[in-house]
C-alpha cells in the first residue's frame, strides 16, 4: 500500500507538470517551456498537491474529533465560514487580503461551533455536527445574498467557491507547506492516542488518554489546515471525506498508517483532478476543480458504498 501511494504520488506529479495547455517534454525543454514550468505550472501543481494533502489530513482529524466518519471541513462548517470570510473580502474590494479574511472567517466559525458544542469543558460530537450544518447553511445563504447584491463580482465569487489553483504562487506554496508541517508534526506523536480515541470516551479516558485536550488540539490543527486551503484555493469538497475513506477501505485503519497516507493520497488525488480540470476542455479553457472532485469523487464514493457496504457498516 505504501508503494502504491508513493507510485501514485510520483505519477500524478510527473503527469501534472508535463501535461497542460502547453505540453512540456521534461527531458528536453526549450527556454519558453522552462519558464512556463517554473513560473506557472510548478507552483500550481504544488499548490494542488498541498491543498489536497491539507484537506485530506484535516478530514481525518475532524473524523477523530467527532468520532464520525462523515465529518470533514465541510460538515463542521469551517469551509463555509472561511468562504464567507473570503467572499466578504471580494465584496469589499480587498482582494489582496482574501486569505486573511478566509482565515478569520474559518476561525470565527470554528470558535462559534466550538462554543456551542462545548458543554462543561467537553466537546459534544453530535451538537458539533449540528452546529456545523447550521453554520454551513447560514454561510451559504450569506454568500448567496452577497452574490445577489453585487452583479459584477458574481463570476469571480462563483469560480472562487468552486475552487481552483490559478492564483498559485511560490510564496503560497511555502506558507501552506509550513502550515501542513506544523499541523502534522503536532499530531505525529499522538498516533496511539488517536487510535484509542476511537473507543467511547469513558474507555479512552480510563486507558490514560486526556480526551478533551487531545480533541481541542486536533480541532485547531484541522481548522488551521482548512482555513489556509480555502483561503488559497476556495472550497473543494469531498477530498477530506473520500480520501480517508478509501484509505481505510484499503486497510489503513491505524492512525500511524492513516495520517501519512492521507497526506500522500490527498496530494496525488488533487494533482490528478487539477490536471483533468485544466486539460479536459479544448482551447485552454478550465473547469473549476471542485466540479471534478465532486463528480469523480461522488461516483467513486457511491461505488464504494454499494460494493463495500459491509466494511462501512463495521466502521460504526
Amino acid at each position: 500500500m505504501r508503494f502504491i501511494l508513493a507510485a501514485a504520488l510520483a505519477l500524478a506529479f510527473i503527469a501534472a507538470i508535463s501535461a497542460g495547455a502547453v505540453k512540456i517534454d521534461l527531458l528536453s525543454m526549450s527556454e519558453m517551456e522552462r519558464n512556463i514550468l517554473f513560473d506557472v505550472r510548478l507552483p500550481r501543481v504544488l499548490l494542488a498537491g498541498l491543498v489536497g494533502a491539507a484537506l485530506a489530513l484535516s478530514g481525518v482529524l475532524f473524523q477523530y474529533v467527532m468520532k464520525n466518519p462523515l465529518a470533514d471541513s465541510f460538515t463542521t462548517g469551517v469551509s463555509a465560514s472561511s468562504a464567507m470570510g473570503a467572499v466578504t473580502a471580494i465584496m469589499l474590494g480587498l482582494m489582496p487580503y482574501l486569505p486573511l479574511f478566509a482565515l478569520a472567517g474559518g476561525i470565527a466559525g470554528l470558535y462559534l461551533v466550538y462554543r456551542i458544542a462545548s458543554y462543561r469543558g467537553r466537546i459534544q460530537p453530535i451538537t458539533m455536527l449540528l452546529a456545523g450544518i447550521v453554520l454551513s447553511t447560514f454561510a451559504s445563504a450569506t454568500i448567496s445574498f452577497m452574490k445577489f447584491l453585487s452583479d459584477d463580482a458574481v463570476s469571480s465569487i462563483i469560480f472562487w467557491l468552486m475552487g481552483g489553483f490559478q492564483a498559485a504562487t511560490p510564496l503560497k506554496d511555502l506558507i501552506l507547506f509550513a502550515v501542513i508541517c506544523v499541523s502534522f508534526l503536532s499530531v505525529r506523536g499522538d498516533y496511539l492516542r488517536l487510535d484509542i480515541l476511537c473507543f467511547d470516551d469513558t474507555t479512552a479516558s480510563s486507558t490514560g488518554v486526556d480526551v478533551n485536550r487531545l480533541r481541542k488540539k486536533l480541532f485547531f490543527a484541522a481548522a488551521l489546515l482548512t482555513s489556509f486551503s480555502v483561503g488559497y484555493a476556495g472550497i473543494i469538497g469531498f477530498v477530506g471525506l473520500i480520501i480517508p475513506h478509501i484509505l481505510r477501505l484499503g486497510n489503513l485503519v491505524k492512525a500511524s498508517y492513516l495520517l501519512p497516507a492521507s497526506l500522500a493520497g490527498g496530494a496525488a488525488f488533487m494533482m490528478a483532478t487539477d490536471l483533468i480540470a485544466r486539460t479536459i476542455l479544448q482551447g485552454g479553457q478550465e473547469l473549476p476543480v471542485g466540479v471534478i472532485t465532486s463528480s469523480i469523487g461522488g461516483v467513486f464514493f457511491l461505488y464504494l458504498l454499494i460494493k463495500r457496504r459491509k466494511e462501512l457498516f463495521y466502521f460504526n
Binding site: 468520532k67 476511537c198 473507543f199 467511547d200 469513558t202 474507555t203 491505524k254 466502521f315
Partner: peptide, 11 residues
C-alpha cells in the same frame, strides 16, 4: 471496564 463500550474504527 465500562458497562457499554463502543469502537468506531474497524480494528
Amino acid at each position: 471496564l465500562p458497562q457499554e463500550a463502543a469502537l468506531n474504527m474497524p480494528f
